[in-house]
Design a protein around this nucleic acid. Sequence first.
DNA 1: TTACGTTTGTTGCCGTTCCAACATACTTGC
DNA 2: GCAAGTATGTTGGAACGGCAACAAACGTAA
Lengths: 219, 219
Amino acid sequence: MVKLLSSVQGYELFDGMSLEEANAMVECLDGHVISRDKGAAIFVEGSHANRFGAVLSGSLVVVKDGLDGKRIIIKRIGEKELVAAAQAFSGAKIMRVRVEADAPSRILILNAERVCSPCCNGCAFHARLVRNVMRIISAKTLELNAKIEILSHRTTDDRLLAYLHTFAEKCGSNEFDIPFDRQQLADFLCVERSALSAEVSRLARAGAFACHKNHFKLT
Amino acid sequence: MVKLLSSVQGYELFDGMSLEEANAMVECLDGHVISRDKGAAIFVEGSHANRFGAVLSGSLVVVKDGLDGKRIIIKRIGEKELVAAAQAFSGAKIMRVRVEADAPSRILILNAERVCSPCCNGCAFHARLVRNVMRIISAKTLELNAKIEILSHRTTDDRLLAYLHTFAEKCGSNEFDIPFDRQQLADFLCVERSALSAEVSRLARAGAFACHKNHFKLT
DNA sequence: TTACGTTTGTTGCCGTTCCAACATACTTGC
DNA sequence: GCAAGTATGTTGGAACGGCAACAAACGTAA
């Protein structure tokens, strides 16, 4: 057996499996590893959506070309995360977005149809895998809901406050470090970086929170 | 056996099952039906998130109380759709939103933990059910992605055009009826109704499309 | 230290949205 | 038809964000 995986540590997809079990699983799902340089495509718009991927190293971006020629970055996908899972399991026939490497990356490509089919090899972990996939996709749905709640605010300060309070709620404390620098936070909130900086200052002066760099303390 | 379902027609959750099979399934999932008047809660914030629902009749809204006291409507859920599925299958322990009836409604409540557990009664449709749930949740994820793409535009006209072009792409024609009146469309795009009306007029005058009521024809 | 690049904060102008109020359709029930 | 209610379109003033250009703080390497 070819061992495509060298570790299952940190992969939600393989939660509850040993390395051997996961590698058996991978073989059962037609697994193969591809490598891509920065900018190279993993999935292109219009391609058949029956495969999904797990990022082994590097990072990807999901992009959509706007009508005006502008490229919109829909999301970033980091190591050990899944890509195109929703596409593959939704029953949609073709990809409506483009996925490309944001850095030199290695991706484990898996056949989605095999996930739900009765396992030919009688491997005992399909049920576990299905539960994991369901949990991953569901969690992603919740994340997207949270993001929509933030984006439903139109002003920069409302978006910032919604983000900070959601974050505080999630981490159970009102003092925390956010995982973004200013530019990344601006991209996430879909606002201008400079306007965001200005709002951070203004709200801090107004006493809504204290902050230094990406450390925040809500009041 | 109590037959809680009188039809499986239109329920993606029971796709591929007969009415008898679906009713057996429902019993296996601890199914029971609840009724709620408009405004009454189905799930409250902070409650244990191990159940989900299928709307038998009526319609629901998922709401979140903002810090400023404003209630944000996150989404509407219509007949035969699922509610709280992502919550229940994500592994999250508690609900972070509130779900209430938007009209007098009957909801079939199901136990999410039973979906993935090996079936006690040996009923043959767990695998099918799991596939259906995965497809439903995945499709929802794609919908949310599309909405985020729309909301990532900040101007009303960009949001409107993004929505219309996405819709045209989905229905495969550039002449179509949208399922919203102006107020609903404004809510969906997170913009002001009056500003939206103004933009519709302006873009129609500018020749981007022709429109009458909710019938649009892109040029 | 100096020089350089990167990140973050600040400012002014201009375009757009918000909000409220009003005007004009369209629909429904009588 | 008429009236009442709802949906849609229009307008003007105030507020806000986008953009560009610049200033300040920080880290790094020669």
